[in-house]
Design a binder for these strands. Structure first.
Lengths: 200, 200
DNA sequence: GTCTATAGGAAGATAGAC
DNA sequence: GTCTATCTTCCTATAGAC
């Protein structure tokens, strides 16, 4: 099948390096932000020569898009894992637990998706800002689904409150460089999920 | 007093343009973000020739610092206003009301202090990242003071939750470009402040 | 004090050798 | 497919005329 080899797109062909670059982009863009990160930074982190990057990604924006998709993938992995739990309430508690377990990263660099969305929303150019919103939507929809299963009267509203609380505690924890904030607020969220008042 | 005129620092002397530049910086940096904003952008917004900026601010970072101080000033004006209300609960409700009233700006550009803090926290260079945290602290402390007056058992914790909710709803509203989120979550916060459950 | 012109440097993107 | 060298553009900051 040497012929089909030739037909493969570069995307599929160079799986190794492309995936390496995507993973590096996701990490470095989260740590340094989009604007302060150069193509060279990402190439170095991936162990790939700087100029070579353009064989896999035509522009820097394409790298950002790939990083965004990578974060969406991580989120998907987590929710797939949680979906194995029989009780929706346990799933939500598991989600909060996952957030708290990443408190040190959050305190240093914020929520990957949240900070990326905030930065991309400052640009009016083509569509990337909305792509960040899509990833946030993914999380909101999954959370709303759990509340719906629980028979809550306003699942979308609940989801906004829970995800909002997460984004807020991530930002505060980051601004004040204090992981404890994640632990403290996370504990409060768990308590509320554990049949606290206001829970239908 | 022509002698004292000569003694004034440039900072005091050129009050007009410096203040113009500071106000423009606060606005433009919020809308475009720090990294995407050029000195020329700020100069244009202030109606001042680009090269002239460096007479008032030695570096771009000094402009960012001034913008941060401007936001802190706005916050101070708001809390001073609210402090005139006799009931701490009304003060907190007034704060939430102020947030909601700025929902359109939040949906387009996020919370000025929050987005600035998130962006500055991506840099390890000199101290500006911590300055953003200071402004957030200001707000947290004022809110905690109100809860303390109300006799709450955990004023700092309450403050983290309330300010966190604000930062979270600002970010979500921004990411999804939906001002309604601010209105919806704001109404919830008011409801909770109005003697909802969980309020000591 | 005010402004213009420009130095100096960095980063995205491309051309083309291998 | 892989990598080097470089082109182009843009931005911060400065030098110096007025």
């Amino acid at each position: 099948m040497t012929d089909s080899e030739k037909v493969r797109s570069p995307r599929a062909k160079a799986g190794g390096k492309r995936r390496l670059l995507t993973a590096a982009a996701a990490r470095v863009l989260h740590e340094q932000g989009v604007e302060r990160t150069t193509i060279a930074d990402i190439a170095r982190a991936a162990g790939v020569p700087a100029g070579n990057v353009y064989y896999y990604f035509k522009t820097k924006d394409e790298l950002v898009e790939a990083a965004l998709a990578e974060h969406a993938g991580h989120l998907r992995e987590l929710t797939d894992e949680l979906d194995r739990l029989p009780d929706p309430r346990d799933r939500l508690k598991g989600l909060v637990g996952a957030w708290v377990s990443r408190r040190d990263t959050a305190a240093r660099y914020g929520c990957p998706t949240g900070t990326l969305a905030a930065e991309l929303d400052k640009r009016d150019d083509g569509g990337l800002d909305l792509a960040a919103g899509q990833v946030v939507r993914l999380l909101l929809d999954w959370v709303a689904g759990q509340y719906r299963e629980l028979g809550d009267a306003d699942p979308e509203g609940r989801a906004l409150t829970l995800v909002g609380a997460y984004q807020g505690m991530s930002l505060l924890s980051n601004a004040l460089r204090d992981p404890q904030i994640m632990a403290r607020e996370g504990a409060r969220l768990i308590r509320e999920l554990d049949g606290g008042p206001g829970m239908t």
